[in-house]
Design a protein around this nucleic acid. Structure first.
Lengths: 216, 216
DNA sequence: CCCTTTCTTGACTGTCCGGTCAAGAACGGG
DNA sequence: CCCGTTCTTGACCGGACAGTCAAGAAAGGG
C-alpha cells in the first residue's frame, strides 16, 4: 500500500510508522486510543502512550482534542459506532425479530474471540467498561453513556415489539424492560468472559434470551 | 467515643482524624482504600489520597502492603468479605432455596441505594469493577478474581441444586451454568444502575431469576 | 526495666502525567 | 503564486505518581 504526500517529514514518518497524512491524524489517534482503552481503561492509558502508538506528537493530539476527557468521549462514540455496525448487520428486516438478537449475540461473541486472538487476552465489552468509567460522577460523560446504552437497548426493544406484533411474544411484556434485561445480561456475560478469559462465555443461548424476554 | 493511647503524636492525630492505634492502621488503610476504589477505580485512586483520607503516612502503608498491586488484591479480598457477609445473611437454611437468591438481590439493591445516599452517586458492584480491572492481564489478579466469582457463583448453584432436590427446579438444569447466568445478570444490572444512577434498577424480579434458572 | 520487634515519621527520588506554547511547515481557496 | 488557515513540531511546565529509606518512637515479652 503506497501513500502519497508532498510533506517531506510526513513522508519520512510514513515510511517508519505509516500514513499520518494531514486529515487522517485525528482518525489515527482515535483508532489507537480506542484500541488501547479497550485493552485496559481510560485511566490506565496515557496521552503519551497513545501518541507514540499512533506516531503522532502531543501537540497534534491536543490540536484535535481539547482534553483527555474529550478524547474519552470521542472514544465512547467511536466504540458505539463499532457496536452499531454490528447491530445493524444482525438486525436486518428479512430476519425474524427475535433471531436478530441471537445473531447479534453470536457476532458479539465472535468479536470477543477475535480480540482475544489479537490481544492475547479477552477484553470486556468496548462500551461496558468505558460507560462504567465515565459514569463515576455526574456530567457529560455519564449523560453520553446513558444515551449510548439507551440507543443500544432500542435495538432490542424494537425487535421485541415487532415480535409482539407478529404474535411471537406476549403483549403483556414491556419491550423496553425486556431490552434492559437483555442488555444487562450481555454486559454481565462480557464481564465473565473477560475475567475467565473465555470469550465463548458470552454466547447466551436462544433459550436464555427467550426466557429473559418473557420474564416479566 | 474516646480513644486511649500512650502515643503522644498518635493521640494528636486521634483528636484530628480518629483512631490510628497501632494495630488498627492496616485495617484503616484497607477500609479507606476499599471505599475510595469503590467510588472510582484502582487506577484512579492514588496512594497519597488513600493515606491522607486514612490519616496515615506513606511509609506506614508500605509497611503493610508491599506495592499498590498488593493493596489492590487486599481490597478485592476485603470486598469479597463484605459480599460474603451479605450472601450469608440471605442464604439461611430456614429460607427456601430460591428465595435465598431473591433475598440476596434485594439486599444488594438496598446496599447500592445506601451507597448512593452516602456518596451522592450510585457505585457499581464492589466486586464487578475491581475484578474487571484486575483481569486486564493474566496474573495473580485475574486468578483471584476468578476464584472470587467462582465462590460467589457457588452460593447460587448450591441453592439451585437444593431446589432441584426439593423438586422445585427441573433436574435437566445445570446448577453451575444457571449460577453463572444469575451472576452475569446481577453484574449487568449493577452496571446499568451505576450508569443510570438508579439503584432500583438492580432489583431483578423473582420472575426474572426463575426464568434465568430454567433457561437451559 | 530492658531489649527486640513492630510500627511511624517525613523527607526524598526519579518518573510520568496531562496540558501548553511559539514557531514554522503544509494545505487550499482565490 | 500568494496568503490566511490548518496542522505539526519539540521543547517545556508544574504537579502528581509509586516507591524508598534511615532514624527513631512505641509495643510487648521476658
Amino acid at each position: 500500500m503506497t501513500v502519497r504526500s508532498r510533506t517531506g517529514y510526513a513522508l519520512d514518518r510514513t515510511v517508519k510508522k505509516g500514513i499520518p497524512l494531514a486529515r487522517e491524524t485525528r482518525e489515527r489517534v482515535l483508532r489507537t486510543a480506542r484500541d488501547l482503552v479497550h485493552g485496559a481503561s481510560l485511566a490506565e492509558v496515557g496521552i503519551e502512550e497513545i501518541c507514540a502508538e499512533a506516531g503522532v506528537h502531543r501537540g497534534s493530539l491536543y490540536h484535535f482534542f481539547p482534553s483527555k476527557d474529550a478524547l474519552g468521549l470521542a472514544v465512547l462514540d467511536a466504540n458505539w459506532d463499532l457496536m452499531r455496525a454490528m447491530l445493524d448487520e444482525a438486525f436486518q428486516a428479512a430476519v425474524e425479530p427475535l433471531d436478530r438478537i441471537d445473531r447479534f449475540i453470536q457476532g458479539f461473541g465472535r468479536m470477543l474471540g477475535l480480540m482475544r486472538q489479537k490481544m492475547g487476552t479477552t477484553p470486556g465489552c468496548p462500551l461496558g467498561g468505558l460507560t462504567a468509567e465515565l459514569s463515576a460522577q455526574p456530567g457529560p460523560g455519564r449523560d453520553r453513556a446513558q444515551a449510548v446504552l439507551e440507543e443500544w437497548a432500542g435495538y432490542f426493544s424494537g425487535a421485541v415489539h415487532e415480535a409482539q406484533v407478529r404474535g411471537q411474544v406476549s403483549r403483556s411484556v414491556d419491550p423496553h424492560a425486556a431490552a434492559l434485561r437483555i442488555l444487562a445480561f450481555v454486559q454481565g456475560m462480557a464481564l465473565l468472559a473477560k475475567v475467565y478469559d473465555r470469550p465463548d462465555r458470552v454466547v447466551a443461548t436462544r433459550e436464555t434470551i427467550r426466557a429473559l424476554i418473557a420474564a416479566d
